[in-house]
């Protein structure tokens, strides 16, 4: 399969994969990004994986566009060595009530009970397709079809960091306090963005995410731990081994 590369101005190019939101396509994006990370090309400034594309920012004073494209073709033709080292990150979540003001509306919209919405939302394993919107905000694919719900007609002015929302066929977690139109069904106390860590972002593209329902008491206990800096996010690697932090 040949690669399609397009210039984005004079200092970036985008490798365009098949334009659809699908796991196998996003895996190719992550694969290309990880090959580039493993075999750094001189002149590459930064790389930005998205749903179905990988954008490479380069310094044209160090590497020409043509050379950059050739390097990418070489990387694409290397085969067999890649294994996606996925991590699974579990987020404890308190559903409904003040922390999930749209849970009942989402349930009504689909003729489900709030508990059925919770069961469906926590049953799935989601993939981080892209980070964006705000620093560290994960666009999560894999929402059970029955939960797909349009955005709010009028976005809220203030959504707290940690709010878990649904927009169309996607679900996501607000990483900082911000305005937003996603339907908020739950809240997690686990911070996605911590300035005292390097990198300060909990998630990366290609990670898997799952939500675990907690009671009000468990939620409060985790809030305490987070505030005291003693909370360790639950992260396991692709072999099932526990890994913490990044």
């Amino acid at each position: 399969m040949s690669l399609t590369c397009l210039p984005v101005g004079d200092m970036a190019l985008t490798v365009v994969f098949e334009q659809k939101i699908a796991e196998n396509i996003n895996r190719r994006v992550v694969e290309m990004a990880s090959r580039l990370a493993k075999r750094p090309v001189k002149g590459v400034v930064e790389i930005v994986p998205a749903y179905a594309s990988l954008t490479i920012y380069y310094d044209p004073l160090i590497i020409s566009y043509q050379e950059m494209v050739e390097r990418l073709h070489e990387l694409d033709h290397m085969s067999g060595e890649y294994e996606e080292k996925q991590r699974i990150v579990t987020f404890p979540a308190l559903y409904g009530g003040e922390q999930g003001p749209d849970l009942n509306d989402v349930a009504d919209h689909h003729g489900l009970t709030p508990q059925q919405v919770i069961d469906l939302h926590t049953s799935a394993l989601y993939r981080v397709y892209m980070l964006g919107f705000s620093p560290g905000f994960p666009y999560l694919g894999g929402l059970p079809r029955q939960l797909s719900t349009p955005r709010l007609d009028t976005p809220r002015l203030h959504i707290p960091a940690g709010a878990i929302g649904i927009a169309g066929s996607q679900t996501g977690i607000y990483s900082i306090d911000s305005p937003g139109g996603w339907r908020i069904i739950a809240h997690t106390p686990v911070p996605l963005f911590r300035l005292d860590e390097d990198p300060p972002f909990l998630l990366r593209v290609g990670d898997l995410v799952r939500f675990m329902p907690v009671t009000d008491e468990e939620y409060q206990e985790i809030v305490q731990q987070v505030n005291h800096g003693t909370y360790q996010p639950q992260i396991v690697d692709h072999t099932g081994k526990e890994v913490n932090g990044s």
Partner: peptide
């Protein structure tokens, strides 16, 4: 389009047809 990275200086055009020239504080995608 399916969201992708936007560079400083990229000119995006939403449905209304009025272009937006993205600059230093743009979102990355």
């Amino acid at each position: 389009i399916i969201s992708d990275s936007v560079a400083c200086g990229s000119i995006q055009v939403p449905a209304g047809g009025n272009p937006i020239l993205l600059l230093a504080d743009r979102q990355p995608t």
